[in-house]
């Protein structure tokens, strides 16, 4: 498979364009004595087909990294590029469009609109983007089905559990042909089996060619990623890749089968 090349990025020749590129990004909050360096010199490329997990203690800059990647915040220095387009150079209108069309964002607190049903919440970005409401609803229903919660289509957020709202939020992030999916603790409110099915959906979306970045505290969830990046005090201190690594369980790949 070509994934090693995609994740390695050192194949020489025609290197694929990263879906997300944080180029020497820093982010400083506050000024003077209250100044906090949230991110320092982050360089991160995420390629098509790749799911990256970001881990680190509270305050290490994980969420800041994600909001920058999603165009919800701007770096103090450096550049954020989505599909090769620098977000810093875009008008507000164009930026909103990129966020709507190219980026799916799962917020930690879901950010569902209380006055809209699950299906309406999910369809909204498509409608804002000019899709007919009928087409948008069809897509929303498909996204709900993909998350295994088709029956929630006409429920309002207040009538849903935290876990259900979270899955609706994920369905909203996955609707349309978004090339970049960003998720802040996407499994937070979910029990372990439901959390796993959400990760499987995210994984499948990346296997189908999207790029994903997820922030998580749980190693077991981060392990669904192709690459795990460790943040400490705003710096990327380490990372793993595993697709090119020798497997720990080589024999099991050819697990004997009783006949």
């Amino acid at each position: 498979m070509s994934t090693t090349q995609l994740t390695g990025g050192q194949s020489g020749g025609a290197e694929p364009v990263p879906v997300l590129h944080l180029a020497e990004v820093t982010r400083v909050h506050g000024r003077g004595a209250a100044e906090v360096q949230a991110l320092r010199g982050i360089d991160l490329r995420v390629y098509p087909g790749e799911l990256v997990a970001v881990m680190g203690p509270s305050g290490s800059g994980k969420s800041t990294l994600l909001t920058l990647a999603g165009g919800l915040d701007t770096p103090s220095t450096g550049e954020v590029l989505v599909e090769g387009v620098a977000l810093g150079g875009l008008s507000r209108k164009r930026l909103a469009q990129v966020r709507r069309r190219s980026i799916g964002y799962v917020f930690q607190d879901y950010n569902l609109i209380p006055a809209l049903t699950a299906a309406e919440n999910i369809a909204l970005p498509r409608e804002l983007d000019g899709a007919s409401s009928r087409a948008a609803r069809r897509e929303a229903l498909a996204a709900l089905a993909e998350m295994g919660i088709a029956e929630l289509a006409d429920r309002f957020p207040d009538d849903m559990s935290g876990g259900q709202q979270q899955r609706v939020a994920i369905a909203r992030a996955l609707i349309g042909d978004r090339r970049l999916v960003l998720a802040d603790e996407p499994t937070g409110a979910l029990d372990s089996t439901t959390g796993e099915s959400v990760l499987a959906v995210l994984r499948a979306r990346c296997d189908a060619g999207a790029a994903g970045v997820m922030v998580t505290h749980e190693a077991r969830h981060a392990a669904w990623a192709d690459r795990v990046v460790f943040l400490r005090d705003g710096r990327m201190v380490d990372q793993t890749t595993s697709r090119d690594a020798a497997s720990l369980l080589v024999p099991s790949a050819t697990r004997p089968r009783p006949t």
């Binding site: 499987a200 392990a223 192709d226 795990v228 201190v237 990372q239 793993t240 595993s242 690594a245 369980l249």
Partner: peptide, 20 residues
């Protein structure tokens, strides 16, 4: 600690892929 964490994380990724 970090070099062990990287190694164990990688193992966890491998196990998870097999689980998938």
């Amino acid at each position: 600690v970090q070099s062990q964490r990287r190694h164990s994380m990688k193992a966890l990724q491998d196990y998870t892929r097999l689980k998938g």
